[in-house]
């Protein structure tokens, strides 16, 4: 069995593991779901009414029965009903997902646009001043938490230019593209900066490896222009680690950026999970975490597939 088939076979098993872990974890949270759902009004209910509600949501059954039911429904594409929204979980997730996806894509684009050229530039001037500057910048970028960078960005904009990022009502991309981009650009920049820093480092070190290979020297000896050697001959072979890292980071970003969404008041997946955990909305937490883990694993699988396209040498190994 080759690696890829093995990865595909492990996929549903790991998902099953993730689902049971989440299922158990959320039920260990102190307090019961009915009380959390009704807040202060829970005190007004008679025990019989509470019992009826619990029965309605299936919360009165043993864990194993609840898990079995949930899994069975899941196989039919039903993630259950969120007690806080009173709507199907899948719908709630899909309503939030476009924002998270857009943010992840924008951050990825920003990171690639900065990271790859910076890394290549530094590698071609290894150990010179420019290389050092790029490395110091990347190191600082990688060490700056998104919440520190985000707050500094907001402060500098408001103190320096008197501009405040538009927060409050969120405008979806398809309703008002311009307003949407205005709201998304700072969060995307915040997430993209740290992402770009790690891409720069990895692109630089991969390029250094490739530039020291024989075929690059041969190309130079044959008189191929320096620019063409770097971009046409060397870069494609340095892309594998860049693609891996982009994939992992992108997979993380699809899980929602809790802290950045919090800072910029964006209604994304990350903040929804945080709220759902705090509200003990079992079905919503289970569904969202499973959704996030699924995306994360899917992206990683696609990255592995991309290797095959990028590097013919891997195909033979299997």
């Amino acid at each position: 069995m080759n690696t890829l088939t093995r990865r595909l076979a492990a996929f549903p098993l790991v998902l099953l593991g993730v689902s049971s872990l989440v299922f158990m974890a959320i039920r260990l949270v102190p307090g019961d779901a009915i009380t959390a759902m009704l807040g202060t009004e829970a005190g007004l209910l008679t025990p019989a009414q509470k019992q009826a509600l619990a029965a309605y949501f299936g919360l009165d059954r043993p864990w194993i029965v609840q898990y079995g039911r949930w899994l069975w429904a899941l196989l039919h594409g039903d993630l259950g009903i969120s007690v806080t929204y009173g709507k199907p979980v899948l719908g709630v997730i899909l309503a939030r997902f476009p924002l998270t996806l857009e943010l992840a894509v924008l951050s990825l684009l920003i990171a690639l646009a900065i990271g790859v050229p910076a890394g290549v530039y530094a590698a071609t001037r290894a150990e010179k001043g420019a290389d050092l500057a790029v490395r110091v910048g990347a190191m600082i970028g990688q060490s700056t938490p998104s919440f520190v960078f985000g707050l500094l960005l907001i402060y500098l904009l408001s103190a320096g230019f008197g501009v405040l990022p538009a927060m409050g009502t969120f405008a979806p991309l398809w309703v008002d593209p311009l307003a949407n981009l205005g709201q998304m650009i700072l969060p995307a920049l915040t997430l993209g900066a740290a992402f770009a820093a790690s891409l720069t480092r990895i692109a630089r070190s991969a390029m250094l490896d490739v530039l020291s290979e024989d075929y690059v020297r041969t190309a130079r000896a044959r008189g191929v222009p320096a620019r063409q050697v770097i971009w046409r001959h060397a870069l494609p072979n340095a892309l594998i680690p860049v693609v891996t890292l982009s994939g992992i980071e992108f997979g993380y970003l699809l899980g929602g950026a809790v802290i950045v969404e919090q800072i910029y008041a964006l209604p994304g997946l990350g903040r929804m999970v945080l709220d759902a955990i705090l509200q003990r909305d079992y079905a919503l937490v289970q569904g969202t975490v499973l959704f996030i883990a699924f995306n994360f694993m899917l992206v990683n699988l696609l990255v592995d597939l991309a290797y095959y396209g990028l590097d013919p040498r891997i195909r033979g190994r299997g």
């Binding site: 492990a10 098993l13 790991v14 998902l15 593991g17 993730v18 872990l21 989440v22 974890a25 959320i26 260990l28 949270v29 102190p30 997979g251 993380y252 899980g255 809790v258 802290i259 999970v273 945080l274 955990i277 705090l278 937490v285 975490v289 996030i292 883990a293 994360f296 694993m297």
Partner: peptide, 24 residues
Amino acid sequence: MRAMDILLAFPAILLAMLIVAVMG
């Protein structure tokens, strides 16, 4: 190693949040 794969399938901060929710 499969158990570790399961833990690694969660974005780190999400898993940390989940644990904090369980334990306060």
